[in-house]
C-alpha cells in the first residue's frame, strides 16, 4: 500500500475512502465525534446551571468579566483555520502533497494563535483573582473552555505529527485518510467553539 506510486490522474477521487482502513477511520472519527458532542453537552449544561453562581459576595459576574473583542479575534482565528483545513483537503484530492503540508501548516499556525490568545485570557482572569477555585462559576467556566482548549492542543499535536511523519513519505493511500480524519476533527473543534462564543461569551455579556 505504501509503495504504490500515484500521479494526479491515477489518484482516486476520494482518496480517504479508497481503502477499507480509510472507510473505517472515516466512520470511526464520526462516531467518536458523536460521543464528543454529548461530552460537551454535559459540560455546557453544567456551565449554564452554574453560571454566575459563587460564594456570598462574589464580585465577578460574566457581564463584567468577558471581553467581546478578544472573543471575536479568537473566533476569527479558529474559523479561518477551519477554511485553511478545507484547502488542505482540496489539495489532498488533487494529489498535491506540498499544498496539503502547507495548508495543514497554516492551520496549525492559526490554531497556535488561538491557543496563545486563550492562554493569555486564562492568565488574565487568574491574575485579577478569578482563579479555578474561586467559585462554582469559575470552575465551570475553566472546565468548559479548558476542555475545548485541550481538544485544540490534541488537534495541533495530531496535525504536527502528521506533517512531520509524512514529510519524507509523501502522499499515499495509507496516510490520506489520516489527514482527512484530522481535518474532520479540527472542524468539530470549530463547531464546539461556535457554541462557546455564543453561549459563554455573547450570552454572558448579556447577563
Amino acid at each position: 500500500m505504501l509503495n504504490t506510486k500515484f500521479t494526479p490522474q491515477t489518484w482516486p477521487e476520494h482518496p480517504e475512502q479508497a481503502t477499507h482502513e480509510g472507510k473505517n477511520k472515516y466512520v470511526g472519527i464520526w462516531i467518536f465525534i458523536c460521543s464528543d458532542i454529548v461530552l460537551f453537552a454535559s459540560l455546557f449544561a453544567t456551565y449554564i446551571s452554574l453560571r454566575n453562581k459563587g460564594p456570598a459576595g462574589m464580585q465577578f459576574t460574566s457581564q463584567e468579566l468577558f471581553e467581546l473583542p478578544l472573543a471575536f479575534v479568537m473566533t476569527m482565528f479558529l474559523l479561518t483555520s477551519s477554511l485553511t483545513s478545507v484547502y488542505a483537503m482540496y489539495h489532498l484530492k488533487n494529489y498535491n502533497f506540498k499544498g496539503v503540508q502547507l495548508w495543514t501548516g497554516v492551520t496549525v499556525l492559526l490554531g497556535l494563535g488561538f491557543l496563545a490568545l486563550e492562554i493569555y485570557e486564562f492568565y488574565h482572569y487568574v491574575h485579577i483573582g478569578f482563579g479555578y477555585t474561586q467559585s462554582a462559576f469559575s470552575s465551570a467556566f475553566f472546565t468548559l473552555v479548558g476542555t475545548h482548549g485541550l481538544h485544540v492542543i490534541i488537534g495541533l499535536v495530531w496535525m504536527i505529527c502528521l506533517i512531520v511523519r509524512n514529510a519524507s513519505r509523501g502522499l499515499n493511500l495509507y496516510n490520506a485518510p489520516k489527514y482527512f480524519v484530522a481535518s474532520i476533527y479540527w472542524h468539530f473543534i470549530d463547531v464546539v467553539w461556535v457554541f462557546i462564543f455564543t453561549v459563554v461569551y455573547l450570552m454572558g455579556v448579556l447577563g
Partner: peptide, 28 residues
C-alpha cells in the same frame, strides 16, 4: 461521556479544590 464529565467534576472537586458540588461556593 456524561459519566466521564461527572467523574471529572468529582475528581477536581475532591483533589484540586474546584467547587462544582460545594454549595457554599455556589455549586450544586
Amino acid at each position: 461521556p456524561p459519566l466521564t464529565v461527572g467523574l471529572f467534576l468529582m475528581l477536581v472537586d475532591r483533589m484540586f479544590d474546584a467547587n462544582f458540588f460545594d454549595h457554599t461556593m455556589g455549586g450544586n
